[in-house]
């Protein structure tokens, strides 16, 4: 089965970088730096545990995928940044 596209959206400018989402992620699919949060698309299975865990409603589930959302958000910028480290 083809891997589903990313449905987890990081709302820009809201994250407190607390790491609660990382702690529940079973796929090690979230990269958290001092002030950057990014979803690693290759690993994310859209299970939504991070969305439920987020104390501040920063993460959102979008069934239709997030590719149509604005590109200048933390999720996309840092996704590339995080992957550049690997």
């Amino acid at each position: 089965m083809a891997k589903p596209f990313l449905m987890i959206y990081v709302r820009p400018g809201k994250c407190d970088f607390c790491g609660c989402c990382v702690g529940v992620c079973p796929e090690d699919a979230i990269e958290l730096m001092e002030a950057k949060l990014s979803i690693i698309e290759d690993r994310c299975t859209n299970c939504r545990k991070c969305v439920w865990a987020c104390p501040w409603e920063v993460l959102e589930f979008h069934r239709e995928g997030i590719q149509d959302l604005p590109k200048d958000i933390v999720a996309v910028d840092d996704f590339q940044f995080a992957n550049s480290l690997k």
Partner: peptide
């Protein structure tokens, strides 16, 4: 809580959502 060092060494540190407390 956001530990990844353990995961890289092969230790399962994922916290079950029943046990994780979401705090503000």
């Amino acid at each position: 809580v956001e530990s990844r060092v353990g995961k890289w060494a092969g230790i399962d540190t994922t916290c079950h959502i029943r046990d994780m407390e979401s705090c503000a």
